[in-house]
Design a protein around this nucleic acid. Structure first.
Lengths: 116, 116
DNA sequence: TCTCTGAATAGATGTTTGTCTATACAGTGA
DNA sequence: TCACTGTATAGACAAACATCTATTCAGAGA
């Protein structure tokens, strides 16, 4: 049987290799800031599955360059992508990236443990 | 209909609140380091679902206090728990925490978007 | 009680990160 | 071409972080 690709193997299946751990930790790092998590959620839950930056800045207490910085971090982590359409820039979520992280966290086959 | 609890609502269902975002970002931050991700994977995939610290330190290039520090971060994030049994301390994964993060990343109902 | 081993804590240090202000870049429309 | 608006980049700075060495704590066994 072929080993499952790193993209879809749960953490609990086999120890993560050094390289995979580095890549995946980078993606989780992008999710490790409250502003970024809310940005991602705003984009994902926006009608049509995408949102203009002008829709995103509103709910936050931080400046526009800070929002722009966080969007770049999410984009460089491969979680979202964007496109300019005239004056505005639209962002959308890349579902396969979320799914990759989600399947990593799967607890299928995880043996329950705890105090003896 | 009652609103789904924050623990199980996908990011794409509705915008994440400020407080939930803070909590969840903290959990993702615990996953945002390659050593911690490998530690978690090592614990989860260890036979019996738990591992002694002495089983964990081996594969890493960092010192014992650093491993201890990372285990503490994972524990304080609610991802693992531990117990001393005689000389040794055993760690195990808390599956509900992983499941909470996993369901947050679910793409069910996410509208595909992209370049026009 | 003494010593040995496994694990955690304390404190120091260089690096990374989140945020800001100031500025530049990209389109639109007059 | 000029002015205006939306977005990104540059650079600075304080706070958070990963790692180390040195030390302490907790149990086991003689």
């Amino acid at each position: 049987m072929l080993p499952a690709p790193a993209c879809c193997t749960p953490l609990s299946r086999e120890p993560l290799g050094e390289d995979d751990a580095k890549t995946l930790a980078g993606m989780f790092k992008a999710l490790s800031d409250p502003v970024r998590l809310r940005l991602l959620s705003l984009i994902a839950s926006h009608e049509g599955g995408e949102a203009c930056v002008c829709d995103l800045a509103g709910p936050f207490d931080v400046t526009q360059p800070t929002i722009s910085h966080h969007l770049r971090v999410l984009r460089e982590a491969g979680l979202i992508d964007c496109e300019r359409r005239g004056t505005w820039v639209y962002y959308w979520v890349l579902p396969t990236a979320l799914e990759r992280l989600g399947s990593l966290l799967s607890t299928d086959g995880l043996v329950a443990a705890g105090p003896r």
